[in-house]
């Protein structure tokens, strides 16, 4: 009986709750103990606004990650979507709502491109998405000679800066994308196939389903999130800058990996969001502690690779414990 309780506790700590949650709690305690500004409402609201972009990207990346792929193009695709968005509004006088739709379509297009590279052309996902990154950056830079596009219609600033029912619109966007992602993953056959792609692609093929289609769709979905994030980012800055998203893909990748291990076939929307929040709080906490920007990246990278290694080792240990239990 006691052993059984122990097992349940272990399952709760190590399996049911993403490991990142525990790290998150420790980190929050540390930051709030060392600086009283950390746990304030103003800081939380600020985090939300800043973090919307990252969390939305994380939710797309987690879907690709579950299929067993690595997505490194979304930062660049987001920049490109922003450029297109601004360009059609400024140069073609397109109304914002149409421009937003176009931004999402561009995102989906580039996501689908990734999917095609991976499925039909057999290119490993990290190379395919790096290639797409290059293509997107090149287009974003080339389309306006490397210049920022400004002078967006006044109305457009609503998305990034206003509230709806007292809640900032970016937060609404996070909530919507979160709900969409978790419904897709948990409540639809598509979700089952996404998990199947990562867990045992052969099983999916044996069941007679077009595995390639679902893989392409997973990448398209990640592209869509890049398109949505681009709208918020561009509206907040009221300008589109061609390289604004570079580096974002790393934070999104890190969030997705931390929220659900790098192992294919595993992960949840909640994990993706928690991983994203971890990154946000780490960045925010380092700022509040007054660590200079030029040191932050080094700490960031090191913490991240350590976290990946630790979560991998935990994962393996759990697997071993499970095997031993079964042997008995």
């Amino acid at each position: 009986m006691k052993a059984n309780n122990g097992k349940q506790l272990r399952q709760f700590i190590l399996e049911k709750v993403p490991t990142v949650t525990w790290i998150l709690i420790v980190m929050m305690i540390y930051f709030s103990a060392s600086n009283s500004n950390f746990l304030t409402f103003a800081n939380a609201a600020n985090l939300c606004r800043q973090g919307a972009i990252l969390l939305i990207l994380c939710l797309g990346v987690i879907v690709v990650k579950i299929t067993g792929g690595i997505e490194l193009s979304n930062g660049a695709v987001m920049s490109l979507c922003g450029m297109v968005l601004a360009w059609v509004m400024v140069n073609m006088n397109m109304p914002p709502y149409l421009a937003i739709i176009i931004s999402m379509l561009v995102g989906i297009l580039f996501g689908t491109l990734n999917g095609i590279f991976v499925t039909f052309m057999g290119i490993p996902s990290f190379v395919a998405t790096l290639g797409t990154q290059g293509i997107a950056v090149g287009l974003a830079l080339g389309m306006n000679n490397g210049n920022v596009i400004g002078g967006l219609p006044e109305k457009f600033s609503i998305i990034g800066n206003d509230n709806f029912l007292n809640i900032p619109i970016p937060l609404w966007a996070i909530i919507l994308v979160f709900i969409l992602t978790s419904v897709l993953l948990n409540k639809t056959p598509f979700g089952v196939y996404v998990y199947a792609l990562g867990g045992n692609e052969e099983a999916l093929k044996l069941s007679g389903k077009p595995a390639w289609l679902y893989k392409v769709l997973a990448y398209s979905y990640s592209g869509l999130t890049a398109g949505i994030a681009a709208c918020i980012l561009t509206s907040r800055n009221m300008a589109a800058q061609p390289t604004v998203g570079l580096g974002m893909e790393f934070e999104a990748f890190a969030g997705a990996v931390l929220g659900g291990s790098y192992i294919a076939g595993k992960g949840t929307a909640m994990g993706g969001v928690l991983g994203g929040i971890f990154i946000l709080i780490l960045r925010n906490g380092l700022n509040i502690l007054g660590i200079p920007t030029y040191l932050q990246l080094a700490i960031f990278g090191t913490v991240l690779i350590t976290a990946i290694v630790l979560s991998t080792l935990v994962e393996r240990r759990v697997q071993k414990m499970r095997d031993e239990e079964r042997e008995e």
Partner: peptide
Amino acid sequence: LWQQLVTGIVVVLSV
């Protein structure tokens, strides 16, 4: 400015 575009395409095609 278009260089990265070309590099990206070349990477994908060569792989």
